[in-house]
Structure formats: C-alpha cells, structure tokens
Nucleic acid binder design. Structure first.
Lengths: 329, 329
DNA sequence: CTGAAAGCGCTTACAG
DNA sequence: CTGAAAGCGCTTACAG
C-alpha cells in the first residue's frame, strides 16, 4: 500500500498537492493533476480512510440501526432485503458506506467512536432508548416506519392511513357493512396509522365500528389466525376483515377456511404489504402494496441532503400505497 | 468528545497509560486502571476508532460482499435476513462490525482503504472477478455457498448433495421410479451439488436417469413453472420431481395443477430450502431444510479464527440438512 | 508498572 | 497554483 508521501515523492510534489488532487482537483493545475492521477493508478495508491477520517472528522460511513433481537428471532421484515439493496445502492452513489451497528454497544457510542456521518434507523416498534439517544444527540438520522423528527432527524414511511382507507373503501364498494380489522401491535406506528385509516374510512362511509371488531395482534401468521378466531366468535360476525399485514391476513384466511367459511363469499379479507405470498395463496390475497424500493432511495436522499447542508431539514417522505385486488375480496 | 490526552491529564498519567488501560488492562496497576476507567465514563471518553485503525492497521470491521445488481432486482435470498442477523450478532460478540461493501468500487480497494480485517462473501453465483481478486490478495475471507478456498479463504455451505439425496431416497421409498429434477443455474455451486446428489441417489437406487428428466432452471418461481411444463411434455412423464429450490418447486406445483394433475397422487414434488411458503402452500411442500442460523454463526466463527491466528486455516463448514415431509410427496 | 517520543497517513490553514 | 508545517487521536517499542 503506497502512501501519500510515496506518491508525492514519486511525482516530485508535496503531499499537500497530492491531497488536493484527490479532494479538490479543480484547484490544482491540469498537468500536475493528471500526472498525479496517472501515477496513483500506476503505483496503486489509495487514500487511507482512517487517516482521512481522523483529519476531517467525516467517515463517509452511515450507521444502520436495525434491532434484531428485540422481537422473536424468526422475525422477518416484509421487505428488508429491498430496503438494504436500495439503501446501499443509493448511498454508494454518494460515496457512503453502510455500517451495521452492533446492539452490544449503545448506538450513540458507536457513532462517535467511528465518526459516523449519520444513521438510518429501521424501526422495530420498540421504544429503544438507544435510538432516542441518537436523535437527542442531533446525529443526522432518518427513521423508517417511525414518525420521529428532531433538529437532525426526519423519516420515511408509507401512507399507512391512506392505504388502510383504500382497503376499507374497496370493501365498502363490494357491499360490506360489517367490516372488522386485525391490527398490528399498536405501539408501532404502522399499526396505529393503519387503524386510524381504517376508522376514518368507516366514518367516511358512515358505518359504525363494533368494539368487538377491532382485534390487536402482532403482524404474524399465527397471531392473525388467533385474532380471526376471536372475530368469528363476535356477536355480530363481520363479513369482511382488513388485516393490517399480509401475514396476519393469511393466518386469518386459514382460520376462516378451518371454520368452513368460503373466501370471499362468506368473508372477504384484505391485507397490507403485498408480500410475495399474497399472490400465491389461493384465492389470491387482495392487499395494499407499499413502495418497497421507495424506502431505501428516499432514506438515502434525505440523509444525503442533511449531510450536504445543515440548513434545512428534509421534509418527511410519505410513500404512496396502492390497492391490489385479488380473489380474497 | 474527550480525547485520550484530556483523559490522561485528568487522571494525571501519560496517554500511554490510558491507552494500555483500554488495550491491555492487565499490565497496568489495578488502582490506576480503575481510576482511569472511572474517569473515562465520568468524562465520556471513547477511543477514536479511526486513530486506532491508523495506528494499528486493524479496523475491527469486516466487509460484507453481497452482489445485489447482478441478478434481477427482485432477487430474494431464501434467508438473507437470518444470515445477516446471525452474522452480525456473532461478529459483535468479538467486537467486529459489518461494513456493507459498495459495488461501485472494486471490493479489494475498499478493503484496503478501510483496513478491513476480513470479508464475508455471500455468493450470488456470478464468477465475479472482484471476488476472486479478494481471495488472490489473501484477505481473510469466508465464502457462503461458494466452495472456494485459498491461503486465507474458507467457506460454509449446506450439504447440498446430501440434502438432494435425502429427497430422492424419500421419493424412492414412496415407490417412485421415474424421478426428474429441476435444477438451479448450474454455474452456481448449490445447484451443481444438488444435481450431483440427485444423480448419486438415483444411481444408488439403481434407477436410470432419463436425459429429458433433468431441466436446468433459475431458482425462481416462473422458472420452475416453465421447467415443469417441459417435464410434463417428456416422452416418459416423471411421477416425481425434485426441484432444487422451493420457489421452483412451487412453480412446478402450479404447472402440475394447471395440467390437471393431482399432487402427490399423479406427481410428487420435493423442494429445497424450506422457505416459509413451503409450509403454507397446499398440500404443503415436502422439502430439504437448511440450517439457516448455521451460516452466519459458522461464518463468524471461521473468520474470527482466521483473525486470531494465521497459522491454520479453519476447515470448511458443511451444514447438515434435514428432510421435512409434507403433503406434496 | 509508567512515561517520553516517534509514528500511523492524511488534511488544511497559512505563506508565498 | 504549490509547499512547509501543524495537527487529527491513537499505539507501541524503548527506557527507566
């Protein structure tokens, strides 16, 4: 590994000039600039990032906060992979790398030790104090699926309420008047917002909400199954169910089928997320699709904007949702 | 952010002593050690990683090589999330962080610029020269699902051949004699190995392999569907199909059903991976389960071993597979 | 067990 | 447009 000193000597210039060639090429004369670039590739010079970070306090790395043990180990984000791919790609375009933060150490410590430029927070619904510490410390941060703002914190989320309303309006159009909902854990923003959208759309249609017809669940398949059992046992059985996540919706479908009900004739079901399975499980799950690629690119855009200017905080991004009608409704 | 100098002055010792307290606590006297530790938390001192890396040439970061654009954008690893979670957790326990490497720059360059201690390579089946460069450069590396070794490179993989054999023997026991296979892309190690296992198990049972009965596909659902169409059109229609990936198996089931065949009566199907969907798609897909958590933990173990001693290269890890019998066979 | 000092490889005012 | 020099915050032989 050649160092800046070696390259400087090789080109018979000072290290300052070499440094400038890599950092502000425009301020050095075209000839020497080119000569240094050529020599750099010739002798295989690469600027050492640790040294740069030490000198500049900027690491060109952003931390990824992604709490993995909090929920049950098998927890699967509906589209974590897409988020990572799009985030990584979009950040790369700005020379930023993603560092996955360990949970064995407070995130804020890791941010400081590594001079991270910012963080992306994938929420898991926990009110993690380590995450709050990050926001309080005014680290540039963008949260996903977590409506948190601060002087240096913005967020990107789906239009959860709007998506839920889409689902409900669709059911209303199909003639349903007794519509129930299986919610996610209401401490999580997406679950709470989808419930809000559900309520708002029913109010809009002037339909009452039976207290028995809202069951809080956990976003998982078995949870949806259990919740559906409760709905089927309600005094007034709903004719349609909006499950705020596809896994729960599929669990609910299973419960309905086990109870001898036909889908959608006896009970219609609509989910949320549009996971791969939704298209595959007969008769096809009607669901609300999120903009999977949007999360990563919007998060990267917001973060880069914050890093480039501390002047104005980027506005939160609310990604549109779309209804996908399949056989279950 | 307090620096080592400030902490040293605060404790009235030299910076060397402070450094020792954090790096080899045993060589400093218990009293001053404790005094320095206490003062560190008191004034909020955290060692600066860039400075440490610059001085030691070790970054405590390992690169994650994960090619995301090579395949189609929507490509989903059957259990990428588990790999990331287990890898991250296991590496954290050794104070190592995971840096997701950008593809805009040759991996080797990033490794050098950031002084990465090693890399974990999640293969995507491409013969990526950037990956080979890593191995040639003798960077400590562990490859997943890619049988590559070198002076500083080992791997972890499932017992793909053994798993395929499990599937075939099961079908043979069920009385099948015309068994076909839908393979993954044969340039990938898992696909090639599963085909080997398929062949070996048929030979073991003294069953012939019809040339028409091996169709190369792509690990995806639609690919499995197309491949199954070809198998159903074979002169001798197979009575059982081993699809070397669950997505393909599910595509094959769909094709069979569309052709009016009953599963498993008219045609039995066995997959590989045990994705979540396998249990959910009626009548349940018999499949070969991999040790999902094993990849990450084994990879971390191997890498840590390499980092601790350059003496002996850890042997490759071959994770056992298990047959999970469901309704499709 | 502890300290003084050199060195890791950069960047960036400050001069010229 | 370029260079000399200080500084970023650590670690680690070398002495003692």
């Amino acid at each position: 590994m050649a160092t800046i000193r070696e390259l400087a000597r090789y080109c018979d210039v000072s290290v300052a000039t070499v440094s400038r060639v890599f950092n502000s090429p425009e301020i050095v004369s075209p000839e020497t600039r080119q000569r240094i670039f050529d020599a750099a590739t010739e002798i295989g010079y690469l600027p050492n990032e640790s040294a740069r970070t030490l000198a500049t306090k900027k690491s060109n790395m952003v931390g990824l906060v992604w709490d993995t043990d909090h929920r049950r180990p098998g927890w699967r984000h509906p589209f974590l992979q897409e988020i990572l791919v799009t985030l990584k790609t979009a950040l790369s375009a700005h020379g930023l790398h993603l560092l996955m933060l360990s949970q064995r150490e407070p995130y804020l410590q890791a941010v400081r030790r590594h001079n991270l430029d910012g963080v992306v927070i994938i929420d898991n619904g926990s009110q993690d104090p380590a995450v709050l510490a990050l926001v309080d410390a005014e680290i540039p941060a963008v949260a996903l699926d977590l409506r948190r703002t601060g002087p240096t914190c913005t967020y990107v989320t789906s239009d959860n309420a709007g998506g839920a309303a889409l689902a409900v309006r669709h059911l209303v159009e199909r003639g349903h008047r007794r519509i129930a909902s299986i919610t996610g854990p209401l401490r999580t923003a997406p679950a709470a917002e989808r419930l809000d959208g559900f309520r708002a759309a029913l109010a809009e249609a002037r339909l009452p909400i039976d207290a028995d017809h809202v069951v809080e669940s956990d976003f998982y398949l078995d949870g949806g199954h259990t919740a559906m059992l409760r709905l089927l046992a309600a005094r007034q059985r709903p004719t349609a169910v909006f499950a705020a996540g596809d896994e729960m919706a599929i669990g609910a479908m299973r419960a309905a089928r086990e109870a001898g009900l036909r889908i959608p004739e006896d009970v219609a079901i609509v989910g949320f997320d549009d996971i791969e399975l939704a298209a595959l499980v007969p008769p096809g799950l009607t669901t609300v699709a999120q903009d999977r690629a949007g999360f990563g690119t919007a998060a990267a855009r917001a973060l880069v904007a914050m890093l480039q200017s501390t002047e104005e905080l980027p506005a939160p991004t609310v990604l549109p949702t779309t209804l996908i009608v399949r056989g279950s409704s």
